[in-house]
Amino acid sequence: MKEFGFSITKDRQIDYDQNDHRLLNFVLENEPSFIVCISCGGCTATCSAGNLIDFNIRKLNILIRRGETEDLEREINKCMLCGKCMLVCPRGINTRNVILKIKEAIQKFR
């Protein structure tokens, strides 16, 4: 059941200065195409996993770019690596390698 009303929640402002950007830098270094995303959402629209469950790869990627990596591990594990996102990306981002690199970074900086 969804909770309404007042509750203590985390500050929803992105604190860019406080955030940890190691993960982003690792992904960028190992898969430079990650930088050219324009958040068109094509990947999320076509996503096989996103079709079955709440999973938004574009949003995860932009959050990583802001240094927001909370829940990232749980979320990224929903990906099935099917590759549809790679086929629709208008910027030619190597999305599957981005996923592998994110997973690698999670293990590295855990």
Binding site: G41, G42, T44, A45, T46, C47, N51, N56, K59
Partner: peptide
Amino acid sequence: IKSEDTLSGRPL
């Protein structure tokens, strides 16, 4: 048709 409503952050 499938798209993402990127402003609400959900597939559409």
